[in-house]
Simulated scan of single mutants.
Amino acid sequence: MTHKVFIDGAAGTTGLEIAERLAGRSEFSLITLDDTQRKDAGARREALNEADVAILCLPDDPAREAVEMIDSSSDTRIIDASSAHRTAEGWCYGFPELVGRDRVSHARRVSNPGCYPTGFLALIAPLVSDGLLPADWPYTVNAVSGYSGGGKALIERYAADDAPGFRTYGYDLAHKHLPEMKAHAGLEHPVIFAPAVVPTYRGMIVEVPLHLGAMDGDVHADELREALAQFYEASPVVSVCQNDIPTELVISAEAEPWDGMELFVFGNEGGWNARLVARLDNLGKGASGAAVQNLNLLCDLPETAGLRLASAQ
């Protein structure tokens, strides 16, 4: 069976990388629009309703408009790569490792996780759910990403002669990722999120520092590592480093596209202080790779088909 797929916003970074991962796959037939048609509401509406699966690679408001263009009688299923529906009622959060593969595969509307929340939730959500970490703790998140995650304007800024060497932002403490982090980790308080951009095209490191000794209970860093390893034991996408713990983590300027994610738990002597770290590709498991993983599940295909999992960054 061939599944008709329409990528609305196919000319953007996420859309282009999704198309690359689908290239040559006989299971899919891409509905494409030329430059003029992409700006024509009628052509978009027709494509959205003709597709078996529509993947929205759009800003939030245009993504909401695209959903409204799909007729109530249409069989089109949706994967939204924007942040418009990540905590919306009636939408499945498209993180199959956390919400369950069956739930994603049977959903009609799937909201792709954000890149930073993917790393944070992969680390924290299973541990809070298991009761190893408290839901009422004031968590902080420190993270750096390649500049491709900022879209066309930031990509152009980093291509300029006066490109910044390091860019930190989010000082209004109201980043759009905050609701999704809180909701899908089951937390009582919003996290303090400190994002930054470094001068490399792709790649991401997300870190959650923990003072375990100040928490109720007697949790050790090794217990957290073991719990994460057990949780992701069957995952073909997410891995937990248990042996040969590195002394540093890097983002390579020459990194190839990668759809996996590595998790690390570092602890001091005694294990009462810990640094939980996720390393991923902001355009891979953080965006396009996750969309293709969800698409595979929606179409009852092998979960990792078309994904780039050969090596870490």
Rank of each mutant, 00 (worst) to 15 (best):
T2E: 13
V5N: 06
F6Y: 15
I7W: 02
G9I: 05
E17I: 00
E17R: 14
R25T: 01
L30R: 11
I31S: 02
T32W: 09
L33Q: 10
D40S: 14
A51G: 06
D60E: 14
P62K: 10
P62V: 11
A63Y: 01
T76F: 03
I78S: 02
D80M: 08
S83F: 06
H85F: 14
H85W: 02
A88P: 03
A88D: 14
C92P: 03
F95G: 00
P96H: 03
L98R: 07
V104F: 08
V104A: 13
P113Y: 07
G119C: 09
G119L: 01
F120W: 04
L121P: 00
V128R: 07
D130F: 01
A135T: 04
A143T: 14
V144G: 03
A153M: 10
A153D: 12
F166N: 10
F166Q: 11
Y169N: 12
G170V: 03
Y171I: 05
L173E: 15
H175R: 12
E180T: 14
A183F: 09
H189R: 14
V191G: 00
I192D: 15
A194M: 13
V198Y: 05
Y201G: 06
G203T: 00
E207T: 14
P209W: 08
D216G: 15
G217P: 13
V219W: 05
D222V: 09
E223K: 02
F231N: 00
A234V: 08
V238D: 00
S239C: 07
Q242I: 01
E248H: 13
V250W: 04
D259L: 09
M261R: 02
E262T: 08
L263G: 00
A274H: 04
A274N: 06
V277L: 05
D281R: 04
G284I: 02
A287E: 10
S288Q: 00
S288W: 00
A290K: 00
A291F: 03
L297H: 05
D300S: 15
P302L: 00
L307P: 04
R308K: 14
